Amino acid sequence: MATTTEERLELATAARRLCRERFGAAAVRRLRDDPPPAGEAETWPELAGLGWTGLLVDPSLGGSGAGMAEVVVVLAELGRVLAVTPMLASAVVAVTALSAAGAPEPFRARLEELARGESVVVVAHTEGDEFQPAEQAPTAVTATRVDDAWRVVGTKRWVPFAPAATHLLVTATTNANEGAFAGVLVDAADRGVGLVAGRSLDGHPIAHVDLDVVVPIEHVVEDIRPGLDLAHQRGFVALAATMAGGQRRALELTTTHLRERIQFGVPIGAFQALQHRAADLHCEVERSDAIVARAARSIDQDATKARRAVHAAMVTVARSYLRTAEEGIQLHGGIGMTDEAEIGFHLKAARVAQLTLGDPSHHRDRFATASGY
């Protein structure tokens, strides 16, 4: 579904209106101090009602069939308000992996439920303490054929939004297809699924997942690698958009403080040295928006040729968001370090984002490889 610039601007306006009403620093504090029983998926049906959870789902399954050009508009607005939702983990990464798995009925059913906001599916691939690329086969989780079913045993680590998930798409090593690894759709409520739940520095739920489950044959795709690779590429772009949105908000908070904070009888923003620093940050923000838009266009046009643009976006925006948040705290002064100041939440978000889908050194290395070095 191709959209015009005007349509994307309308989408951004609608997204910003909802995000201001439902999310923000106050909502992050509430989730941290008094998490609701429904967890972070409580806004999921509302996001589905706007069509956001099904943006990448095929229209035949109830989705919009949109592309990353539309997804980044929504993710940027969610990033602005520090929204704690499974949009990245479920509506982008999991939807892409499920869609690329072919047409097994359980996978199609989960996509239909995702589009309606009735399910939250997350991918469980990482087994160590660092991001695990799609081409790196799992070793800690195995899937063994048992009559007309598969038994899946092992542990996945740092699974995003696992505490709020209804289903897990677990990668596992099998003996069925040499050099490949399987994708196994697991019901999160299965008694063979155990969670050690926690939260990241910015408040997002994560968990280590212990597995000893038996699933039907139709819940297994014997080679999930191509779908997982595309899922990660789209996830990188979506995360970069989230960071770019947060970066723009961090700049807004800082410039507002510079206009309102009075020192020596004038706003501190009247001092030229601070104006120069704010101007530098403005350039960083505009560059982040531009490079995210380019990455989204590239992956929509030809995902196989988009790697340079995608990894460039991750490196550039991760660095810029962190710098904008750090500079923002310094320009706020002491209040920037307090819990009541929103700018501090953006520093936490920037730090966590750098580690969510690979750190900057990982993406610099991948950019160099994609460039032929």
Rank of each mutant, 00 (worst) to 15 (best):
Q136P: 01
A279H: 14
E7I: 07
F271L: 13
E105R: 09
P86Q: 03
I268Q: 13
D34R: 09
V120H: 01
G265I: 07
Q263Y: 09
L357R: 06
M337Y: 15
I291L: 04
R225E: 13
S90W: 01
G128A: 11
L9F: 08
E46M: 06
D365F: 13
M1E: 05
L347T: 02
R319I: 08
A279F: 12
T53P: 07
L355F: 11
E40N: 15
V122L: 05
A14Q: 13
E340K: 14
L322E: 14
S298V: 01
H257Y: 07
A100L: 07
G63F: 05
V209A: 03
V57M: 00
I343C: 08
A303Q: 05
V315Y: 08
D229R: 13
A250N: 10
V153G: 04
L331G: 01
H219Q: 15
V184A: 08
T126F: 02
I206N: 09
G358Q: 06
F131I: 09
L322P: 01
G269N: 05
A368Q: 09
G227Y: 12
A238F: 05
T173Q: 14
M243P: 01
C283R: 15
G192P: 07
P45M: 08
D187L: 03
R351I: 15
R307C: 09
R234V: 01
V193M: 07
E42D: 10
F367P: 02
A164G: 13
V152L: 05
D34V: 04
Q272P: 04
A295V: 03
E6Q: 12
V214W: 03
L251N: 06
A137Y: 00
A188W: 04
A303L: 00
V93D: 01
A76D: 12
T174G: 04
G128K: 02
V186A: 08
D33S: 15
V121M: 10
A197I: 01
A313I: 04
H167A: 13
V221A: 09
L78T: 13
C283W: 10
A124Q: 06
V152H: 06
V214L: 12
R29Y: 11
V193F: 02
A97I: 10
A149N: 00
S200Q: 14
D280S: 10
G67I: 03
L347I: 01
R366E: 14
D223P: 03
P104H: 00
S288A: 15
S298I: 00
H276D: 12
T43D: 14
A296E: 06
A15Y: 07
W150Y: 15
D365C: 11
A109C: 01
R366A: 11
I224P: 10
G62M: 00
R32F: 12
L230Y: 04
A207K: 03
G49W: 00
A295N: 06
L185C: 07
A14Y: 07
G246D: 02
F131L: 06
A97W: 04
E327P: 06
G179I: 04
A2K: 15
R16P: 00
A188N: 07
L168F: 09
M243N: 12
F161C: 01
L355R: 14
A38T: 08
G102N: 10
L195I: 00
R287D: 15
H332Y: 14
G344H: 03
G227C: 14
I299E: 08
S298N: 09
T316Q: 09
L114E: 04
S288G: 11
R199E: 11
